[in-house]
């Protein structure tokens, strides 16, 4: 039964993320491009989805006797590239000690200055929200309709990759 709490905690994290990210993530849903979807003019090449950094394989599961072990055992994983109405979105998630410790946006629509302006505040907001959500104690969020959810789709794919879904 030692392993149960870990399994539970990662499921819960996924749950928090899915519930709370949904409400605000899609600041992308603002119609920032007036001329339809412009190909992103300046985007880094998509990074391959999947685990990009993982802790060294250990011979046995950590049993919790080592307090410092959790912080160094970070897993970094890229989500899939989610196609949205405004362009491709891809995120990268870092998980350590059974918690999401960081969310980075690898790719987002930036086809025009308005996109860039929106994302300049949307992305930091999302980052803060994801980290704050884990202690918010909220199961779901009721909010005005989000019309697209590339960020969340990519995030879920990242979590699924490490079997945290």
């Amino acid at each position: 039964m030692v392993s149960e709490p870990k399994g539970l905690s990662v499921r819960r994290i996924t749950f928090w993320i899915m519930s709370t990210v949904a409400a605000l993530v899609l600041l992308f849903s603002y119609r920032t491009s007036t001329g339809g979807t412009a190909p992103a003019a300046v985007t880094a090449a998509a990074q391959a989805p999947g685990i990009v950094a993982a802790p060294p394989a250990s011979p046995s599961p950590v049993t919790g006797s080592s307090g410092s072990a959790t912080t160094s055992r970070a897993t970094t994983v890229n989500g899939s590239v989610a196609q949205t109405q405004w362009g491709p979105v891809q995120v990268q998630v870092t998980i350590a000690g059974g918690r999401i410790t960081d969310v980075t946006t690898l790719r987002y629509p930036q086809g025009n200055p308005r996109d860039a302006e929106i994302n300049s505040y949307a992305l930091p907001a999302l980052h803060d929200e994801v980290l704050a959500a884990q202690s918010a104690g909220v199961d779901a969020i009721s909010g005005a309709t989000v019309t697209s959810d590339g960020y969340r789709t990519s995030l879920q794919a990242a979590l699924d990759t490490v079997h945290f879904g």
Binding site: A23, L24, L27, V138, D139, A140, I141
Partner: peptide, 17 residues
Amino acid sequence: WRVGIENPDSPRTVLGV
């Protein structure tokens, strides 16, 4: 179920639960 109500002026936060 605990449902947060999104703050329309600041989607980073909820008005309450």
